[in-house]
Amino acid sequence: MTVVPRFKTDPTEFLGKRVLVTGGTQGAGAAIVQRFAAAGAKTITSARSEPRSGAGTDLFVQADLATLDGVERLAAAVESTFGGVDILVHCLGGSSTPGGGFAAATEEFWQQELNRNLLAAVRLDRLLVPAMVLQGFGVVLHISSIQHRLPLHESTMAYAAAKAALASYSKSLSKELGPKGVRVNTVSPGWIMTSAADRMVKRLAQSGGTDEETARQGIMEALGGIPIGRPAWPEEIAELVAFLASDRAASIHGADYVIDGGTIPTV
């Protein structure tokens, strides 16, 4: 397996910028927080689990952003501490629906996936983006998934549908906010080497009565393979996010950037 990449970072690239990353205590979210912190940003994150020590976070708000109350508490904390944000990265996401296809996705699971993967972003945008509009600049990045274009069914049908809705919402939002100085883009990763991915493998192995390697291979086969031969590292996702949030990407708006090692087989 390829070693974790190390990238050179300009410590002044985001100096003084207020950056909020949801779901920033694990996986790609944690890597994104660390990337912005290393570039001089004031970083804020929120999740149900606390960040690891030395995670580079200036403000952490422990909250369940799949609930309206959690989103409102986060927005209030951000406003009172920093007066708003300049860059908003919606990294919260994931699936906890068991294997078994559409029949296993009960009403409870559907609502859970929609709240986590779509409505958390919609609600937080509604509370924090108006201040970006007033200041005349800002960046909003929605982390979707290649499953909004290449959906799977075994345990992520509801997740894929929610991420498809997020991508559509993001495009709509970009048309409204672009003329007001706020850039909006979507990042759609494929399979990422995270603890959440490991948990999904274990869940599929258990529900399928098989071992983890078989479950992992099943995911690879369902995706049609990954031409570069591996999932992405969280640090690679963070680099793309940092680029899109930077002035180097000042004319990139309303776009969906896929980072999947070539998984999607079509143009």
Results as ranks from 00 to 15, higher is better:
146 I>W: 06
99 G>K: 07
100 G>I: 03
145 S>I: 01
137 F>T: 14
98 P>I: 10
118 L>Y: 01
99 G>Q: 11
123 R>G: 06
105 A>W: 00
145 S>V: 03
131 A>R: 14
142 H>L: 09
111 Q>E: 10
118 L>W: 01
124 L>E: 00
125 D>I: 05
112 Q>K: 15
105 A>I: 04
112 Q>D: 13
106 T>Y: 06
108 E>A: 11
129 V>C: 03
102 F>M: 15
130 P>A: 08
108 E>I: 10
122 V>D: 08
124 L>H: 03
122 V>F: 13
121 A>C: 08
130 P>G: 07
131 A>M: 12
113 E>D: 12
136 G>M: 05
135 Q>W: 06
109 F>K: 14
126 R>S: 12
104 A>Y: 06
136 G>E: 02
117 N>C: 07
106 T>G: 08
113 E>G: 09
144 S>K: 07
142 H>W: 03
98 P>F: 11
113 E>P: 08
119 L>D: 05
144 S>L: 06
105 A>K: 01
126 R>P: 06
100 G>N: 07
145 S>T: 04
143 I>Y: 01
101 G>H: 08
143 I>K: 01
104 A>C: 05
129 V>W: 01
108 E>H: 13
100 G>S: 07
143 I>V: 13
113 E>I: 10
113 E>T: 11
127 L>F: 12
143 I>P: 00
112 Q>Y: 08
127 L>R: 15
116 R>T: 14
107 E>P: 10
133 V>R: 13
139 V>G: 00
123 R>P: 08
115 N>R: 08
121 A>D: 03
109 F>H: 15
120 A>N: 14
115 N>Q: 11
134 L>Y: 11
131 A>G: 13
106 T>W: 10
143 I>G: 00
139 V>K: 00
117 N>F: 04
138 G>I: 06
127 L>K: 13
108 E>C: 07
124 L>I: 03
110 W>P: 00
121 A>K: 03
104 A>D: 04
106 T>L: 10
127 L>D: 09
117 N>L: 10
